[in-house]
């Protein structure tokens, strides 16, 4: 049965971007207000899931040609690297560093190595959830 998905698809195009923006926001907000890598990653996944829902898996794959396992591995490497950086400075593993910078546009911002770690978390979460959903979704 062919059904008409125009409404869903149109709405999705808009909503996906809203969600993605929200995801980015919530990811960066994480250190000070609720949010963080997990939720950011999960939200990103929901955005992609929504795309899959409205369109179909091959289309989404064409739009986002990402190998999610690689993405997971990269995310994990990112996290490990951030955590291991402290070994180079001979301080206990996982010691974070941070400082405050005065950036144009953003005003005073703190740059925190924990954020880098959180990026790793973010990538892993996206990678893993998408891997799972995609593999099951594709399975005959």
């Amino acid at each position: 049965m062919r059904t008409n998905d125009v409404m869903l698809q149109t709405a999705t195009k808009v909503v996906t971007f809203i969600i993605l923006m929200f995801a980015v926001h919530i990811f960066f907000a994480g250190h000070y207000t609720p949010g963080g890598g997990f939720i950011g990653g999960l939200l990103t996944t929901t955005a992609i899931v929504l795309l899959m829902l409205a369109f179909d898996i091959p289309t989404v794959k064409k739009v986002l040609p990402i190998n999610y396992v690689v993405l997971t591995a990269v995310g994990l490497l990112f996290a490990i690297a951030t955590a291991s950086a402290s070994i180079i400075f001979d301080v206990p593993f996982f010691t974070h560093a941070y400082d405050y910078y005065d950036l144009p546009l953003f005003g005073e911002t703190s740059l925190h190595s924990a954020l880098l770690f959180d990026i790793g978390v973010y990538l892993v979460v996206v990678g893993v959830t998408m891997t799972i959903i995609q593999t099951i979704g594709e399975d005959e």
Partner: peptide
């Protein structure tokens, strides 16, 4: 303080992650 004791955990973790790539 010694990070040495983490190596038996981090080394396989690192390699496992790398192996996931290919």
């Amino acid at each position: 303080m010694s990070n040495l004791l983490l190596f038996p955990i981090i080394i396989p973790l690192l390699f496992a992650t790398v192996l996931m790539l290919f």
